[in-house]
């Protein structure tokens, strides 16, 4: 555990808390993509199956359980409790366009052809593109609430901080995982346009709106 990894995890945790707090306080999930949230639940479920096979630390187990539980709780809020506020018309990205190619890629490009390893690889690839339905939704409506922007910024920062963590681990631990690094870079690149808008607009007190 290094400082970048810890900051990355805290940023990820903060993103989830911001999202839950936004929904709970406003009693609404307007502007949030249910597709992205379903994909995240799939990501956590397929990646953390090792909860049953190996124990790493209390921290590790606690975080994994929290990520899984919060992702399903978010889906419950969106598709059940606050269903009336869910903006399904603008959430029209097709999940199968991501899940199917990513599933195929996980079968073809992995470290070891084992069920758990393939599922782990699938989750890494899927996480890298899981934000696309959300970004698609923001571009379709042309705007995002400020609280949603904070959520996306924290979520994007998490993988950027993981890249610093991988650079650190490469130099100081001799550790390198090509699959995680490439997918992590793809994931971070997808946020670049958003980061630019966040810094130039939201941080200056303006609402995030896209030029028509």
């Amino acid at each position: 555990m290094n400082v970048f990894r810890l900051l990355g995890d805290m940023s990820h945790l903060l993103a989830i808390l911001i999202l839950l707090l936004k929904m709970w306080k406003t009693r609404s999930c307007a502007g949030i993509s249910g597709k992205t949230q379903i994909l995240f639940a799939l990501v956590f479920t397929t990646r953390y199956l090792d909860l049953f096979s190996s124990f790493i630390s209390i921290y590790n187990t606690t975080m994994k359980l929290f990520f899984i539980a919060s992702s399903y709780f978010t889906i419950f809020l969106m598709y059940s409790k606050f269903k009336a506020t869910y903006d399904s018309n603008h959430d029209s990205f097709r999940m199968e366009f991501l899940v199917v190619p990513v599933g195929g890629l996980a079968f073809l490009v992995n470290h070891e052809f084992l069920p758990l390893e393939i599922l782990w690889t699938f989750s890494i690839y899927l996480e890298s593109v899981a934000i696309l339905p959300q970004l698609f939704m923001v571009s379709k409506t042309g705007e995002a609430e400020t609280i949603t922007s904070h959520y996306l910024f924290a979520l994007g920062s998490y993988r950027l901080l993981y890249i610093f963590n991988w650079v650190y681990r490469y130099y100081f631990d001799g550790f390198f995982d090509l699959i995680a690094v490439v997918a992590g870079c793809v994931q971070t690149i997808l946020y670049c346009d958003f980061f630019y808008l966040y810094i130039t607009k939201v941080l200056k007190g303006k609402k995030l709106s896209l030029p028509a």
Partner: peptide
């Protein structure tokens, strides 16, 4: 190249 160490990441 060590990849198994990535499994402690979240």
């Amino acid at each position: 190249v060590d990849y198994t160490a990535s499994k402690d990441e979240l």
